[in-house]
């Protein structure tokens, strides 16, 4: 899983050397930023159900045709799956906040995403709307500190870009 720590170790290993002082510098840089990331991860974990629910409601509100017969949000089973998908993205965002890199989103969310949505004929626009809603809903200092919110929004932007 790609993170600052593993990247540093992988490159030191490729050269067959012990961690150098510049390796340790870059690890320290990531550690200094980590407090904000972990704060965001903690707050998101505590509220992930509400955040996912609001994001889901927002995208269905913008694309009400999804409720029509045969569409992706038409039955209770489909509705539950849509809500679960949104929560999956938020969970992966939380993982990225913990790891300090986009590894979890890349490996578990984005890889194969296009193929899966095409095979299931799912539109990506509602996902974009849901994640954009979540991205604009966060507010500092009400929800978390300003720096934590910046980290959180950056990862939501990353997920949004992967879908658009």
């Amino acid at each position: 899983m790609k993170s600052v720590l593993t990247t540093v170790i992988a490159s030191a290993d490729a050269a067959g050397r012990f961690p150098s002082s510049s390796d340790l510098e870059s690890v320290q840089g990531s550690i200094q930023r980590a407090a904000a990331r972990l704060e965001a991860a903690e707050k998101l974990a505590a509220n992930i159900d509400n955040v996912a629910k609001e994001a889901y409601d927002a995208c269905i509100k913008k694309y009400p045709y999804l409720n029509n017969a045969g569409e992706a949000n038409s039955t209770d089973v489909f509705k539950a799956k849509c809500a679960r998908d949104i929560k999956h993205y938020l969970r992966l965002v939380q993982y990225c906040l913990v790891v300090g890199g986009t590894g979890p989103l890349d490996e578990w969310g984005i890889a194969g995403q296009r193929e899966v949505y095409r095979a299931l004929s799912l539109p990506t626009a509602p996902y974009v709307e849901a994640l954009s809603f979540a991205r604009n809903r966060g507010c500092a200092p009400r929800d978390m500190s300003a720096q934590a919110l910046t980290e959180y929004n950056a990862l939501l932007d990353y997920a949004i870009n992967s879908l658009s």
Binding site: S3, A10, A41, V98
Partner: peptide, 30 residues
């Protein structure tokens, strides 16, 4: 290759839960 953070993520993913034990990671940072 995993580190302390990605280890927490991989074990949380096994039960599709969010990472709960942030305290241990905060101690790692501290």
């Amino acid at each position: 290759m995993l580190d302390a953070f990605s280890r927490a993520v991989v074990s949380a993913d096994a039960s599709t839960a969010t990472v709960g034990d942030i305290g241990a990671l905060k101690a790692f940072i501290a």
